[in-house]
Simulated assay, not measured.
Amino acid sequence: MSLSPTDLIAFLNQVPPEALLLFQALFCFGAILLMARLFGAAGLYLYIAVAVIGANVEVLKAVQFGFYDHPVAMGTVLFGSTYLATDILTEHFGRAAARRAVFLSFAAYLLFTLLMMLTLGFRPMTPEQAGTDMAWALGMQDHIAALFTPAPALFAAGMTAYLTSQLFDVWVYQRIRGATGDRHLWLRNNGSTMLSSLVDNVMFSVLAWVVFAPEPVGWEALFFTYILGTYGLRVALSLLDTPFMYLSRWALGKHLPSQ
């Protein structure tokens, strides 16, 4: 008996959200190592671009977790995993490679957004045009619009915060490495990610849900749901990804510049 996507989603809906969140984090970190193992720096560039696009869609959904009183906007794990990828690039390929990944992912999300807006620009079919064979396509315009109509505002907020925080992350990582040399990998990984994540959380939340929002959220929701709620998760993610940072040299293997 085959398992359809609908069946899989129904099954996952029964899994405690905390367990699913942990699985998502481990899946993302494992995927980063796999992409590094298979494709080297190029694999990390690809992962970061896909994660940035996916996180900006995922942020439209909020979930209630048992460990926090307020709903938490999704996208935190997926977006937060990009800091591990850029830290790996900074550690093994240098600051220029990490900055290149940031700008490539920015370009990827911009291109994706423009393509989706162009797709929405095509006039949807009428029931008469669709007939019986294409009836399934009649509601797709609304489904796509529900995901990507907010995109311009979210793009402005997300990319402003993303560029600022990721470039800040690369800078802090290099500064800590300059002070500690090759020692204390855990410190530069966690220190840079925690600081830059706070910058990203504050900038994105204020811009997306207050400045650019048609109906701004209240300050309580802004602080507890979007800033504090997701930042706590980011701190936990930063600690959780530390073993994967140590495994990155093994994962890159023959792709390392020194080999």
Rank of each mutant, 00 (worst) to 15 (best):
P5F: 02
P5T: 11
I9S: 09
L12I: 08
N13E: 13
Q14K: 15
P17R: 12
R37H: 12
L46G: 13
A49R: 00
V50L: 15
G54R: 10
A55P: 05
V57F: 14
K61T: 14
F67D: 00
P71E: 00
V77I: 12
F79Y: 06
G80S: 05
S81R: 01
E91T: 08
H92W: 15
A97D: 08
V102R: 05
F103M: 13
L104T: 00
L104H: 03
S105H: 09
A107I: 09
L115P: 00
L115F: 13
M116I: 07
M117K: 11
L120R: 07
G121W: 03
P124R: 10
P127E: 08
Q129G: 09
Q129E: 15
A130D: 00
T132W: 12
M134T: 05
L138H: 06
Q141N: 15
I144D: 01
A146I: 02
P150I: 11
P152Q: 07
L154K: 11
A161H: 10
A161V: 03
D169C: 13
V170Y: 09
R177T: 02
N201R: 07
A208R: 09
A213H: 09
L228E: 06
G232I: 03
V235E: 11
P243W: 09
Y246M: 06
A251S: 08
